Amino acid sequence: NQASVVANQLIPISTALTLVMMRSEVVTPVGIPAEDIPRLVSMTVNRAVPLGTTLMPDMVKGYA
């Protein structure tokens, strides 16, 4: 089972991601792979991401 990136807090729309905002967790459905966390830092989300939500590729500008 692959770990995915999960929001560690509410991430408001257009917020630049930082390490403290994300954690890795094995979830269903599978989202962005946890090993991509370093790549996600400073990318922005294009929607509000509630606490505990799995980050999907279409939620992060420039990721997909």
Rank of each mutant, 00 (worst) to 15 (best):
G52Y: 04
A3S: 10
L40R: 03
Q2P: 15
V20W: 14
L40N: 00
T28I: 09
T53A: 13
A7P: 01
I13P: 12
P12F: 05
L51R: 09
R39S: 11
Q9P: 01
P38Q: 10
T44K: 11
S14A: 14
N1M: 15
R23E: 04
A7W: 03
A64S: 11
A3Y: 09
P12Q: 10
K61Q: 13
Q2N: 14
L40Y: 02
I11H: 02
I11C: 03
T54Q: 03
N8Y: 03
D58H: 09
A3F: 11
Y63H: 04
N1Q: 15
S4T: 04
R23M: 05
A16G: 07
V26H: 12
T18W: 03
I37S: 04
T53W: 15
V27Q: 05
M59H: 09
S24V: 12
A48R: 14
V41F: 05
E25L: 11
P29F: 04
A34H: 07
G31Y: 02
L19G: 07
S24Q: 13
A64F: 06
L55F: 15
V27H: 03
Q2S: 13
P50F: 08
V5S: 02
L10A: 13
A7R: 01
T28N: 14
V49A: 05
V20C: 08
V27K: 10
L17C: 03
T44P: 06
M21W: 03
A64E: 10
R23H: 05
T18S: 09
V26D: 15
D58Y: 13
L51T: 14
V41A: 05
P33Y: 10
P12W: 04
E25G: 09
D36M: 13
L10H: 13
L17K: 00
A16T: 09
N8Q: 09
I11V: 06
D36A: 09
G31K: 02
G62A: 11
V41I: 14
A64M: 14
L19K: 11
P57F: 06
S4K: 01
P38Y: 09
L17R: 00
R47S: 09
T44M: 13
R23N: 06
R39W: 14
S42V: 03
I13A: 14
S24N: 05
M59W: 12
A3W: 07
M59Y: 14
A16E: 09
V49S: 01
N1E: 15
M59V: 08
A64D: 11
E35I: 11
D36I: 07
P33E: 04
M22C: 03
E25T: 09
L10V: 10
P33V: 07
V49F: 03
V41L: 13
E25S: 10
S4E: 00
D36N: 08
P38G: 11
M21H: 08
D58W: 14
L19I: 06
D36W: 09
V30M: 14
V26C: 12
T53C: 08
T44C: 09
G52W: 04
N46Q: 09
V20K: 14
A64H: 13
M22S: 01
V45G: 01
T54I: 09
E25R: 07
G62Y: 09
P57G: 07
S4V: 01
V30H: 15
L40T: 00
T54M: 04
V45N: 01
L19E: 06
V45S: 05
P33C: 10
P29D: 05
M43A: 06
G62H: 10
T53Q: 13
S14K: 11
Q9C: 08
P50I: 05
V26P: 11
A3C: 09
M21N: 09
M59D: 13
I13D: 14
V49R: 00
M56L: 09
I32G: 02
M59K: 02
V41T: 05
L55I: 14
V20N: 11
V20Q: 15
P33W: 09
V6Y: 02
G62E: 09
P57V: 06
E35D: 14
N1R: 05
L40I: 10
L17Y: 00
E25K: 07
M56N: 05
R47D: 05
V26I: 12
T15D: 03
A7D: 01
D58M: 12
P38N: 13
E25Q: 11
M59P: 01
S14L: 10
A16N: 07
S14R: 12
Y63K: 03
M21Q: 04
E35M: 11
I11A: 02
S4G: 04
M21Y: 04
M56F: 14
L55S: 02
N46K: 12
M43P: 00
P38I: 12
P57W: 09
V60T: 00
G31S: 02
Y63E: 03
L10W: 13
P12G: 06
A3V: 07
A16S: 11
D58L: 11
D58K: 08
V49Y: 02
A7Y: 03
R47T: 10
I32C: 04
E25M: 10
D36R: 08
I37D: 02
V27N: 03
N1C: 07
I37F: 02
P33R: 08
V49W: 03
A34D: 07
T18E: 08
G31P: 01
E35A: 11
L55Y: 01
L51G: 13
L19S: 08
S14V: 05
A48M: 14
N8D: 10
R23K: 12
T18K: 10
T15K: 05
A48C: 12
T15P: 01
P38E: 10
V27M: 06
M43K: 09
S42A: 13
T15L: 05
Q9E: 11
